[in-house]
Each structure stands twice: as C-alpha cells, then as structure tokens.
C-alpha cells in the first residue's frame, strides 16, 4: 500500500514538474510583447516609452536571459509567489486568482457532483425501463451533443430575457457590495442558478448515457446471471451491477474535475461570471504571462489533486486494485 502511493506520488511530482515547465514556456512563445500591449492601452508620452519599457521589463524580470527567468520562476513558485499580473497593473497573481477561484469552484463543484450523482441514478433507472430509455434518453443525447455555447445562450434567453426569472450576467448585482448579508447571499444565488443549470444539463446527459450503457453491460455479466439463476431478487442483482458499473464513472468524474477551468470558460463568458475562465480569457487577450501561468498552474494542481483523490477512491471501491498492490495471494 505505501509503495503504491509512494510510486503514485512520484509520478504526480514528475507530472507537475513537466507540466509547470511547459506552462512556463507556452506564453513566452506567443507572438507579441506584453509590456508593449500594456503601454499601448495607456496614453503614454512617446519620450517616456523607452523608460517605461525598461521599468516594466525590470519589474517583471523580462530583461533577464530565458534560463534565468526559468530559474526565477521555480524559485518564486516554491516561495508561493506567482508573480504580478501585467494586465491588472501589477496586482499579485495569487491575489487575482484567489478572488476569482470561489466563483469557479462554487459553480463547477456542485454542477459536476450533482450531475454525476443524478446522471448515474437516472441512467441506471433508464437501463431497465423501456419507456425512459426510448423517450428521455434521446434528450440526454441532444443535450450532450448540442453546442454548449448555444445551449447556454438558450438558457439565458428563456430564463433571463423571456421569463425574467434570473439575472442574465455577472456574479452579483453591481448595486451591491460583497458582504455577509442575506440580501447579498440571495443575489449571489440568483446569479448562480443559470450558469449552474446550463452546466448541469449538459453533463447530466453524458453521465446518464454512460451509466445506462454500463448497467446494461453489467446486468449481462456472468455474476449477474448467476445471482439470477439462484433466484436472487432483481434488487440485489441491480445493486451489485450498479456498484460495479460506477467504477468507470468514477474515472470520468476525475477527468471532469480536472478540467474544471476549461469547462467553465464558455459558461463564464456567456453569463459574464467572474470566475477563472473569464480571467483566463482576459489573460490571453492581454498576453499576461504571469496570470496565464498562474491560472494554468491551478488547473494542473486541480487535475492532479482530483486524480489522486480518485486513486484513493478506487482503492476503496475496487478490491482488484488492492490485490495488484500487494501482489495478490493464492
């Protein structure tokens, strides 16, 4: 067991190192100059430009050779310093990201977990009810196949514009200041519903389809047939089938949790939700190396943590992985 997790941790460490390195490289290979674009957004007197360029290059460490920048990157990363955001005029990246993170997590974690739970339940029921299988599952196919952008806009249009139930954009009303009051909490919730709903709908379909297929497969497996031949009630057979069918779904959940930011990008743009996805887009548009790096770093860490949690979950759920660890016994 300890060897297994030791090896896993080593692999995760290596993955983190390689991913962080690539993450450092990519923005620097993008065409363009972040300082130039920063200056071009401000009215700067032409004679001040060379001085400002030199000042900003020194501030962000861009005047040093690349290898030096790379070492600096690791040095400050290990100190928990992700650098300063060029686009947010020098605010520390960590601060910028931490301000956006709660919105993304608050949106995605409930959406992913609830759609996973509900999709699995529904898929398992659909697998044995013909009318559900024939009538409702196609809706799942349509939901998960429809372009997400279009679906999100439809949700915004119907619930926001036509029915006017929920506000269309933002994380909270501009008239309010973030505070621990009921009024703000209610407002926050109202803004949260539509982005959540659109994500939930899309992911729900995918989970339900996956679970339905797995259940049909498991109900035809030998152990199910044996239980049936010994007269076990269908409840027991289905309980066993569900438990075994859920294993691949757990893997899918890990992948889904890992791509948390990428998944929310379109949602956050459509609903102008102030999360990491929206921040990521702004960082790309402004060639903000440090912010981009910082966000990707969070994505990497998120993926690795999610995968590690699933590794642990798998050990608890599936005895076969445990046997693999200890080499088995006859």
């Amino acid at each position: 067991m300890r060897r297994y997790f030791g090896r896993k941790l080593l692999i995760y460490g290596l993955t983190f190192f390689v991913a962080a390195t690539i993450n450092w490289m990519i923005p620097r290979f993008m065409p363009g100059d972040p300082v130039q674009s920063l200056l071009s957004r401000h009215q700067v007197a032409p004679e001040a430009v060379p001085h400002l360029i030199a000042y900003y290059n020194a501030l962000f460490g861009l005047d040093q050779p690349l290898w030096q920048q790379y070492l600096n990157f690791w040095g400050s990363l290990l100190n928990g310093d992700l650098g300063r955001s060029v686009y947010q005029s020098g605010r520390p990246v960590t601060e910028v990201i931490l301000a956006a993170l709660p919105y993304t997590l608050g949106l995605l974690i409930p959406a992913i977990l609830l759609s996973w739970w509900a999709g699995n339940k529904f898929g398992a029921i659909a697998a044995r009810r013909r009318y559900l299988d024939n009538a409702v599952l196609p809706i799942g196919y349509i939901l998960s196949a429809a372009p997400y952008m279009w679906l999100a806009i439809m949700v915004a249009w119907i619930l926001g514009s036509v029915l006017r139930i929920f506000p269309i954009s933002g994380g909270y009303s501009y008239a309010l200041e973030p505070s621990l009051t009921w009024a703000f909490a209610v407002d926050l919730f109202a803004h949260w519903v539509m982005p959540f709903l659109s994500l939930f709908m899309v992911m729900f379909g995918g989970w339900a389809i996956g679970m339905r297929n797995m259940i049909i497969y498991e109900l035809d497996a030998d152990y199910s047939r044996y239980l049936d031949a010994l007269g076990a009630p269908s409840g027991l057979v289905r309980r066993y089938a569900f438990r075994n069918a859920v294993l691949p779904q757990v893997t899918g959940l890990a992948l889904q949790l890992g791509v948390i930011v990428a998944g929310a990008l379109v949602t956050e743009i459509v609903f102008s939700y102030p999360g990491l996805g929206k921040l990521l887009l702004a960082a790309v548009q402004n060639e903000d190396y440090f912010l981009l790096q910082g966000i990707f770093l969070f994505v990497i860490i998120g993926t690795l943590i999610a995968n590690f949690l699933v590794d642990i979950a798998y050990v608890l759920l599936d005895p076969r992985t445990r046997v693999g660890m200890s080499g088995g016994s006859a």
């Binding site: 030998d222 047939r225 239980l227 010994l230 076990a232 027991l236 075994n244 005895p319």
Partner: peptide, 28 residues
C-alpha cells in the same frame, strides 16, 4: 440449482465471497 458453465466468473468481483453468500441467502 445450477453450477454454471462460467463458474470462474460467476462471483461478483467487488464483494468478499462470504459477504456475497450472506447477501444472497438473506435475499432468499
């Protein structure tokens, strides 16, 4: 009762054998 052709794969892979037997018997 039957001893099936697929006896090698007739047991639920994610349940301890004793527990599976208990659950099967209780269900009957």
């Amino acid at each position: 009762s039957i001893i099936p052709q697929y006896a090698m794969s007739a047991l639920n892979p994610t349940r301890r054998i004793g527990r599976m037997i208990d659950e099967l018997l209780e269900s009957r």
